[in-house]
């Protein structure tokens, strides 16, 4: 029972049950939506870019027009950090579009896809993590050194009636918990979205590299 003896029959069997697709059906298929990982990443990148486009002018506006120096620095830094990330997201999108239009040999295609997914997940993680030090350390530093009182915050602390050491202890503990929680959660989320897929692609590549 050799493959060569059954070539013709296997070829026939591979066509069994396949409907004939007309040119009109193909026209409809071209209007459909892709469900590949690449199209999901593209959607995700467009979402990040849209968020950046919304947030950058808003934060820069707050930085320019706020009367509090801490808010100026805080939102100014936020706005500034979003700009290079917007550019990085555009760069990744350009690379993904180029890859999407290319027809490479299977091995090279797998290598490029793995590299692209790893690049994307790394940048996504960096983007999320870059905001943490600003969120906590800069906010703490600036809030502590703010000369002009911020009425809204002062009202909250007055109502809670906590003394300064408890307040600082709580803020430090809260910051540490949130930082570790966010690092772990972001890693888990990225792994859940793309981790298994990347592993499967790596297995295929390993198989191709075997002699």
């Amino acid at each position: 029972m050799e493959l060569d003896d059954l070539k013709g029959l296997i070829n026939q069997k591979l066509m069994e049950g396949s409907p004939n697709i007309t040119e009109n059906n193909f026209t409809d298929l071209l209007k459909g939506k892709a469900s590949s990982v690449i199209s999901k990443i593209k959607k995700s990148l467009w979402f990040e870019i849209a968020c950046c486009a919304l947030v950058v002018p808003l934060f820069i506006g707050i930085a320019l027009f706020s009367s509090h120096s801490s808010l100026k620095i805080y939102f100014g830094l936020f706005g500034a950090i979003f700009i290079p990330f917007t550019l990085i997201f555009f760069y990744l999108l350009k690379k993904i579009n180029e890859f999407d239009q290319s027809v490479l040999p299977i091995k090279e295609n797998l290598q490029q896809l793995i590299k692209m997914l790893e690049d994307f997940t790394r940048r996504y993680f960096q983007f999320n993590m870059a905001l943490l030090p600003i969120c906590f350390l800069v906010a703490l530093f600036l809030g502590y050194n703010e000369k002009e009182p911020i009425a809204v915050l002062d009202n909250i602390f007055d109502k809670l009636k906590v003394n300064k050491s408890i307040y600082i202890g709580f803020i430090v503990g809260y910051s540490i918990a949130i930082v570790f929680g966010l690092v772990y959660l972001t890693k888990w989320y990225i792994r859940k979205l793309y981790g298994k897929y990347i592993d499967q692609l790596k297995l295929l590549l390993t198989e191709l590299k075997e002699d």
């Binding site: 070829n11 591979l14 066509m15 396949s18 298929l29 071209l30 459909g32 892709a34 469900s35 239009q101």
Partner: peptide, 28 residues
């Protein structure tokens, strides 16, 4: 059709893959 039949077992998956290949070919 041959690629879809070889790589997918369920009709719904075969149709999805057929669509994906068509779109991918059009993009490229």
């Amino acid at each position: 059709h041959k690629v879809c039949n070889l790589y997918m077992n369920w009709q719904e998956d075969k149709e999805d893959l057929f669509q994906e290949i068509t779109l991918q070919a059009w993009k490229a």
